[in-house]
């Protein structure tokens, strides 16, 4: 344990890390102080914002209000940033269709350009986290061993040890992560959609987020032991032990006990 912590301390200079984290997440503080709106990281063109506003008025304003300040049926979007829009709209969760225990992913309603225009408009309402760059979410640049350690502590209790998903209370659930794109994984951590807590860059640094993405990208693919049986653990193993194992063996027993014709 001691060696481990020492190694982790050393591996990244904490100061550099902290600086980096502060730089990248200045925007999120806007949640605490929405009035001090700094400019979002990447400056979108004015026409993008205009088109985004039109899309917003047509598709989102019913719930989130014409100015994005929220209504009884939808939260305020001031300060949520382009990352939240990219995640919510890019996974099809928004526009929401029905009211269930939680809003689920479904086929995406907009193309990439429209999503970024919507994002530009929402980001213009109040600074928030921006969409991560390709580099920030590149699994090949992450350290999956560190990602696993972080995933185990911060994510596995809801999403299962390898991201197969799990139950929350009252019909809500933490979804399976294997089909989620690295960008959306990053944005989910950054913005904390629905039940999920926020993992701001002061909590999990951008590098740590990338490590987690590297770990997830290695899961749900090939299980060294054969069929992964859903990676659900002992319950599915027990079920298959009965169905396949006891099933085959009782079949064999019936064959042995039967008289030959």
């Amino acid at each position: 344990m001691k060696a481990l912590a020492a190694r982790r301390h050393d591996r990244r200079a904490p100061i550099v890390l902290l600086l980096l984290a502060l730089l990248l997440t200045g925007g999120l503080y806007a949640v605490l102080a929405p009035t001090s709106a700094d400019a979002a990281a990447a400056a979108p063109s004015a026409s993008d914002i205009q088109t985004g506003e039109k899309l917003f008025q047509a598709n989102c304003a019913t719930c989130h209000g014409p100015s994005g300040a929220g209504t009884a049926s939808g939260p305020s979007l001031i300060g949520v940033g382009a990352a939240a829009v990219n995640f919510q709209v890019g996974t099809g969760r928004m526009p929401a269709q029905q009211n269930g225990p939680q809003i689920e992913a479904k086929p995406v309603q907009f193309d990439d350009e429209q999503i970024s225009q919507l994002g530009a408009f929402v980001a213009s309402l109040g600074a928030g986290p921006a969409v991560p760059t390709e580099d920030q979410v590149d699994p090949s640049k992450g350290n999956s061993a560190n990602g696993m350690a972080l995933f185990r502590t911060n994510c596995a209790m809801c999403h299962n040890a390898v991201g197969a998903g799990g139950a929350l209370s009252r019909g809500k659930f933490a979804p399976k992560l294997w089909e989620t794109s690295p960008t959306h994984l990053y944005e989910a951590m950054l913005t904390g959609p629905q039940s999920m807590p926020v993992f701001s860059d002061t909590n999990l640094s951008p590098d740590e987020k990338r490590d987690i993405i590297a770990f997830i990208s290695e899961q749900g693919d090939v299980a060294p032991g054969g069929l992964d049986l859903g990676s659900l653990g002992a319950v599915s193993e027990g079920l298959w032990a009965w169905i396949v194992g006891i099933g085959l063996l009782i079949g064999a027993a019936v064959w042995i006990g039967a008289k030959s014709s």
């Binding site: 481990l4 904490p14 002061t202």
Partner: peptide
Amino acid sequence: RDPSGRAIKASDVTIGSVFH
């Protein structure tokens, strides 16, 4: 922070975050 052992400042903790 678990497991890194980095100390946490109050200002690091944003609303809605959870730290182990």
